[in-house]
Each structure stands twice: as structure tokens, then as C-alpha cells.
Amino acid sequence: MLTLEGLVYRSDDFSLSADFAVPPGARVAVIGPSGSGKSTLLDMIAGFLAPVQGRVLWQGNDLTRMPPGDRPISLLFQDNNLFPHLTVAQNVGLGLRPDLRLSADQRAAVGAALARVGLAGYEARKPAALSGGQRSRVALARVLLRARPLMLLDEPFAALGPALRAEMLMLVRELADETGATVLMVTHDPRDARALGDQTVLVAGGLAHPPQPTEALFNDPPPALRAYLG
């Protein structure tokens, strides 16, 4: 269970509060107008931003002061998920050891993860030699390999076309099913929220609302969401 306990972030005239829990294994979309603080919420959970008050807890353990790499979290950003100077295998291998001193077993695991996302044999390529969809798959192979119980996705696949994006979301769901991970995904597209699944967090007016069933939320949107959806 991910618990955000009286979490507040403030900077200049911007502020964001969140106080809710996400049950294990949930698929939660995070939606809201731009500038409302969707990414801020994720950055606090991931450890890139420190809250001015409140705590972030995972299974009752306080993560608030923990460095990002030590948290039980895998991340997928909008772009720059891969280091362009490292090969596909190295980029995936970083998920096992940040200094890349991999054992033979670990190298085999990298190959297996790549095969799982449909990129068997791509180990030696550099990201520049891949398509956008393939790059997303490499990043997902790393997420799979890290097998951390919480997946945070900040508008991933935004650069991909609609069909490819749906395919990637499907892959995310499959991987989450296989690892039993809890997923939080920032998106600005209601279709992505629906494709991901059950719950949605609405971020608006300085507040991250507790998760609600996605269908119910979109069928009867509150005023802030209605204004955003237009």
C-alpha cells in the first residue's frame, strides 16, 4: 500500500497537497490541467522533490528521506529514458547494477527481459538505431528487470502515435500483472486513463484528490475535470 500522509509541496505561489492511499496492485491514472502539479506529485513520490510536510510510506515504511534510487520504485519518464551513449543491453542492465558490473546470470536475465518485450537480439544496438516504440520497449524491459513493486510513469509514450501508445499501455498492464506492481501514470489523455484501468487521481486547484473509479469519474465529472475536458 502506498500512503501519502498529509503531503504538502510549496514553491513560490504554487502548492500541492495530497492525503490518500493507493491499494497494492492498483492501476491509477493521474489526470488534471497542465501546471496543476501532476508531475510534482510523482516527483515527491519518486524522491526528486522534498515535501515541506507530510510523509510518503510504502507498506508502512517511511520513504520521505530516502534517495530516489533506493525507493521501491521503477520510473518511466516522458523521454530520455535511455542513455544514448550506452547499448540497449547496458541500458537495461543498469536496472540490475548501477555500475554495470554484471554476472553471467544477470546478463542472461537482461537478454530474457529484452526477449519478453520483443527485442531479442537487439542487445548491442544504441538507442539512436531504434524506433520510438522500440526505445519505449527497452525502458520497459528495464522496469521488468528491476521488479520494483511501484511503477511511476510520467506521461510516457507521449511522443508515440495513438496505435503504438495503446500497444505500449497494454504491455505496461501485462508487465504489471506479471510482477504484481502498483502503477501510477500521469497522462493528459482520458483515453490513456481508461486504457490503463481501474482508478484515477484528479489533480486540480492545488489538491491531488483521492483515487476514484475511472469510469464513474469520467461519466460524472466534477467541475474542475469538466473544465479540463472541455
Partner: peptide, 20 residues
């Protein structure tokens, strides 16, 4: 560009210097 990615992967110190 890559700081958050490296942080999230726990790349610190020597590994960050050498690989990033």
C-alpha cells in the same frame, strides 16, 4: 536531461561519473 533517470537507477559516485 539524464539526472533524474540516473538518480532513479541509483547511479552514484564512480558509476555515475564513468557511465554518465
Amino acid at each position: 536531461t539524464y539526472g533524474h533517470l540516473a538518480d532513479s537507477l541509483g547511479m552514484r559516485g564512480w558509476a555515475r561519473l564513468r557511465l554518465l
